[in-house]
Design a protein around this nucleic acid. Structure first.
Lengths: 345, 345
DNA sequence: CAAATTAGCTTAATCGATTAAAGTATAATT
DNA sequence: AATTATACTTTAATCGATTAAGCTAATTTG
């Protein structure tokens, strides 16, 4: 049983497809279709359960009402959740989302972008990965609408929706310092992505502003592709070092998970052996024996705003650049309890 | 700058679009295109960075190389992961996946199916939710290829790829019994979905086969939509009841998370106050203070096989029904440690 | 009443790619 | 030389929906 097309309806109603199209698109007034015939057309359409063919529509109009969402790492629940938000918001506006994860790999990301361009997506929302600047430039040149989400490139003028990572990281550091911790480490990705640099910068400034001299051995940068192994090595180094830290900030969810696992193995006690603040957010942080303090990023707002910006661009490509940095909020939990609280015990 | 089309290439090469199409589709031999011209066409195509328009292709061929994946609850990491597997496997075969979560709501599921049908997906992979039998029947009637994943309806003959839930649940029960537990509860969804019934059946049989008389108060069924509240109520009841259980099986990831959170609040100690085995899988199970025993479902295999079945159907719609039940494997952890091990302490 | 509107509908081009069918040289065969 | 085969190309229909432009008959207007 084939799908009913405009033609089928036209035939059954004894009119041209044009009329059917006009009626079903609510253009009967402008194009003055007879009332009787309009009613008939609508009835037949209903009877045959007519559903327009999106392909044909899109081919004609050049609009697919589809958004390509490229995520650097969908296995990170923070991104998985943001993907859901984007999807829901897009759906509310009549758009379909095609999601792809590039697993922090720029080549994969290129592939996905090309595949999606061929599929004629109307625009992109992208959580960029390292080394994908050229892709962003390419989209700009080709005038393909897009919004960068969560990560952006300060040297490339684009629309973006991101978190104020400098501030977030600064706040994380400050929180620990106020809790009485002085030797504070940061575990981050080895990356020259701006958002990561900002997190490092914020952390260092928090130390400096509070008269704590940053020690090189406090900053551990691990490769995404070898995260599990390198996190362990880094932690081993940290625990042995002479300026051994009393607290550590995990710059991403993945780092935190690997770190916490290893702490379990090592029987490191949080927060007495080591206090923790982490970026990212996930169920685990609630359920760890010692609930983890984390920086809550405005997930909903980030996702929704990204969609909003993109749709605005699609409607009116001439509109100016739209950029926004949103603030993260520290959610204090046991893992970073002020020293004074657990010292007395 | 508009995208290059076949026409552009044809014009530049001074030939008809037909030739260009033949050459770029590797049909130069059958259609004996001159070698010189073929070369020229390929060069121009490369030079103009030609990328075929999928919409046009699909409109013509009736094939979009797109799969609709409808997931009952994407916030469940088990399903999120399976979605990734499906996506990757589809991509390996040149297919794009459009994912949608219906949040265990049949109406939403209807919507999604309709939207995706209009987008002309070639077929569906569906993790069905309660009350969606009519949708499955509809797809069957309309001869739209689909494969049910993880959940299926025994009364409707369809392709499916699922876990042997009866066996998994039986094994979960057996494991606890062998660990010396006798009073064993099960927390499940209030649902008449077959997979849930099977989990209940397996649990009961495990008890019966080991001479334990099932108590009504041991089985708690909570509504998905009010999970958080009802889990708490259920646990309160369990803890107070006279036949208070010593162990509990969570039939889904969501139930486990909510349960574990509440146990934390109540300071229930796992496994000495209550031993646990759960379905689903997630980072949390590793990182809980007492790592959680769970039934590992063959996630990869489930996802890949679903794609395989669907693609076979797409290639050859006449092929017979394909159904498979895969076995889950219990991963023993601290949360269900044999009583003898912790009693001595 | 002739001319000008207007209402109501159809025609046909278009989006981009595919592909039977038809066309036109050129070469081979009888 | 006439016929046939071969090699190479073009034409045009098609997928399904949209829409500017055109057409016809009824109605209004001066």
């Amino acid at each position: 049983m084939k799908k009913t097309s405009l033609k089928d309806i036209a035939q059954k109603a004894g009119v041209s497809t044009a009329l059917v199209s006009y009626v079903l698109n609510g253009k009967e007034k402008e194009t003055r279709v007879g009332e009787a015939i309009a009613k008939k057309i609508r009835e037949i359409a209903k009877e045959l359960n007519y559903q327009p063919n999106h392909l044909a529509k899109s081919l004609r109009s050049g609009k697919t009402h589809t958004i390509g969402l490229i995520i650097a790492d969908i296995s990170n629940p923070f991104f998985a959740n943001i993907a859901r938000v984007v999807e829901d918001e897009a759906k509310r506006n009549g758009y379909t989302v095609i999601i792809g994860s590039c697993d922090e790999n720029a080549d994969k990301s290129w592939d996905m972008i090309n595949v999606l361009i061929n599929r004629q997506v109307d625009g992109f929302i992208i959580v960029s990965c390292e080394g994908s600047e050229n892709q962003v430039k390419y989209l700009k040149e080709r005038n393909i609408p897009f919004v960068l989400l969560d990560r952006h490139f300060p040297d490339i003028q684009t629309d973006f929706v991101a978190t104020n990572n400098y501030k977030a990281s600064y706040d994380a550091g400050l929180h620990l310092i106020r809790g009485g911790y002085e030797k504070i480490g940061l575990m981050a990705y080895k990356s020259n992505m701006y958002h990561m640099e900002e997190r490092i910068r914020g952390y260092k400034h928090a130390l400096a502003d509070n008269g704590i001299e940053f020690q090189k051995s406090w900053l551990k940068e691990v490769k995404f592709d070898a995260m599990e192994r390198e996190v362990k090595v880094a932690i081993d180094e940290i625990m042995k070092s002479e300026h051994r830290v009393e607290a550590i900030i995990f710059a991403t969810y993945g780092l935190a998970i690997n770190g916490l696992k290893y702490f379990n193995e090592l029987k490191v006690k949080v927060p007495s052996d080591l206090a923790i603040v982490s970026f990212g957010q996930a169920e685990v942080f609630d359920l760890y024996y010692c609930p983890i303090t984390f920086m809550r990023q405005p997930l909903e707002n980030l996702g929704k705003t990204a969609v909003e910006y993109l749709l605005k661009n699609l409607k009116n490509p001439e509109e100016g650049m739209k950029q926004i940095l949103m603030e993260a909020r520290l959610i204090p939990r046991e893992s970073s309890k002020a020293k004074s609280e657990w010292l007395v015990k």
